[in-house]
Write a protein that binds this DNA or RNA. Structure first.
Lengths: 104, 104
DNA sequence: AAGAAGTGCAACTCCACGGTTGCAATTTGT
DNA sequence: ACAAATTGCAACCGTGGAGTTGCACTTCTT
């Protein structure tokens, strides 16, 4: 469930994937439905949705004969928190190093 | 200065780039110095450092004949904040949509 | 002055990724 | 039972990114 961080960033590092996410933000939808709104083939979209699902940014559920997808905003918030932590730790470490370097 | 968000994620979506960042976390270093610690050519590292610099995750400064790089933790924190925002907005929107759907 | 250390640039290979097309399989509605 | 809608799978193509090698250029050091 808690996919490692890097693949999540890789998934978010693609413009068209964001267009799919924002399109999904208008409401849950299937790959075919999204293909109607975006300049992409259904299959291309399906591939992207798989990527997004594998890193937990999206979840799917069957509704009759269609697979409906939903954005998981929580995953974004979670990722953000982890990134924030790393960022602040980095600053602390750099500050510590600077201290040491200056006291030499 | 404030590079668009997506390229930053693309830069962070690479395992070896993280290894470079963490290596840099031990203290500022040049591409050649890093090449001594990582299983990569100096040129490969230089390319990655360019990518990281273009999205503002790293800054460089000349010291004699070498180019020394430093991690910018603040950029990570900044990116995290923006991501957090997007995530929460998403949840709000989804909640709103759910409301509407249920009151139909 | 000369060699060592470091950077910059260019060309090349390899492969993963985004995208497409085509067809089979499943499910729904009438 | 049949046609339409939807998904699933596989093969294929093109491009860009990661990495390497090789060489020229600059800058220390002695």
């Amino acid at each position: 469930m808690t996919a490692t961080l890097v693949p999540v960033f890789a998934a978010l590092g693609d413009e068209t994937r964001w267009s799919i996410l924002t399109a999904l933000g208008e409401g849950d939808a299937s790959a075919s439905a999204l293909a109607g709104r975006l300049p992409l083939t259904r299959q291309a979209i399906a591939k992207h949705l798989n990527v997004l699902q594998e890193v937990g940014l999206v979840e799917s559920m069957r509704v009759g004969r269609e697979l409906r997808y939903r954005v998981l905003g929580a995953r974004l918030s979670d990722t953000a928190k982890r990134l924030e932590r790393i960022g602040s730790e980095w600053d602390h470490r750099l500050a510590a190093i600077k201290q040491i370097a200056e006291t030499l």
